[in-house]
């Protein structure tokens, strides 16, 4: 049973709405993207480990989210650490939170120089994610944008080695970094291609380490921009830069060089300034504070949502989104309040 009271003024389906938004064409309203991961596990009253153990569960979970919220997107996202399992790492599961990467398996930067990328095809982990994409395509292709979410080539080493070790490598062995990033870009391409072939519409690249919170502008220009240019050449699908809550405003003006079609600024980034700096070159998905929203009474939710839409909506190329995944403690009623409130202000006419 749907928790959403609005949508009666909708004149487009979700796919056409997002396509029009990212291409700067007229839409009926701004798309609404509350970023949700394992909420269905809690609704089904099963552990996150069990929920993520099969494609069937995740497809069923995504369908449940559509039934509850009729979201403007559909996503094959499991958890970011899933890719590290192909490098021998164990993901950690929690009752009340998203799975996280376990102890790093790569001890030295030379690992990337001396080894071939792991082949994803045929592995149980990868197959399960592919089956998920296929299951979602079967139900939603042509109706909703199907997002395929994966780790960024620049961020993957920080999960595999540890973030300190990755940054020390950037500092101490700058000559080796391009080779490392070729390895991780090859891996990212391999992961993405299967999902594109399975029918995913958009590749969402999670790159918390590639943000201004983590690196200075010159490192972004030297290493991160070329990665996205390379990925854009290799992949026949648009890419969205997902910052996972990292600040992005200092890079807003140079982001078009990446060729990505959109970005998720952090809740800390000033949306008005971001809009100006983006100058309509890409779509902004932003930037509701996911960590605080669970505590907001309705009136405060309305104030934040209204003001965010007022800043983001003019000129289009804006999607109302949470800056990152909504924490597990936030109830489905609170998420519904967010969407219902947004619908009051989201329409253009």
């Amino acid at each position: 049973m749907s928790l959403i009271e609005g949508y009666e003024k909708d004149e487009m389906n979700a796919l056409n709405r997002i396509l029009a938004t990212v291409t700067g064409k007229e839409t009926d309203r701004i798309p609404i993207f509350p970023m949700i991961d394992a909420l269905p596990a809690h609704i089904f009253d099963i552990s996150t480990e069990k929920y993520y153990s099969s494609a069937e569960n995740v497809v069923k979970g995504q369908k449940k989210l559509q039934e509850l919220f009729n979201l403007d997107y559909i996503s094959n996202f499991y958890y970011l650490a899933i890719e590290t399992e192909l490098f021998g790492m164990n993901s950690l599961f929690f009752e009340n939170g998203s799975p996280n990467a376990g102890k790093p398996s790569v001890q030295d930067i030379d690992f990337f120089l001396e080894n071939e990328i792991p082949q994803v095809q045929g592995t149980e982990v990868y197959q399960k994610t592919i089956q998920t994409t296929k299951g979602l395509v079967e139900e939603y292709k042509g109706k909703k944008p199907i997002l395929s979410v994966q780790a960024a080539p620049f961020s993957l080493p920080s999960m595999l080695m540890g973030s300190s070790e990755w940054f020390e490598a950037l500092l101490m062995y700058p000559d080796k970094i391009t080779e490392v990033l070729k390895f991780t870009t090859d891996f990212a391409e391999q992961w993405a291609q299967g999902h594109i072939e399975a029918g995913a519409d958009v590749i969402v690249v999670v790159d918390g380490v590639g943000t201004a919170t983590s690196i200075p502008k010159e490192v972004f220009q030297q290493f991160v921009i070329p990665i996205y240019q390379d990925l854009n050449e290799r992949l026949n699908a648009p890419i969205v830069f997902y910052t996972a809550g990292g600040d992005m405003l200092p890079f807003a003006e140079i982001l078009p060089e990446t060729g990505t079609i959109g970005v998720f600024p952090s809740g800390n980034d000033d949306l008005e300034t971001f809009k100006k700096k983006a100058a309509g070159e890409y779509t902004i998905f932003g930037n509701i504070n996911n960590l605080e929203m669970g505590d907001w009474p309705h009136d405060f939710m309305e104030k934040v949502v209204k003001q965010t839409i007022e800043v983001g909506k003019p000129g289009g190329k804006f999607v109302l989104a949470t800056q990152h995944m909504i924490p597990h403690g936030v109830t489905k009623e609170k998420i519904a309040d967010f969407i219902n409130t947004a619908l009051k202000y989201a329409y253009y006419h």
């Binding site: 973030s163 300190s164 940054f167 020390e168 950037l170 500092l171 101490m172 201004a212 919170t213 983590s214 690196i215 200075p216 490192v219 600040d247 405003l249 200092p250 800390n268």
Partner: peptide
């Protein structure tokens, strides 16, 4: 403010 410094910059200077 956050625009002036990044985690990598801090780690780099600290490590040096």
């Amino acid at each position: 403010g956050y625009e002036a410094v990044s985690a990598f910059q801090l780690l780099a200077i600290g490590k040096i």
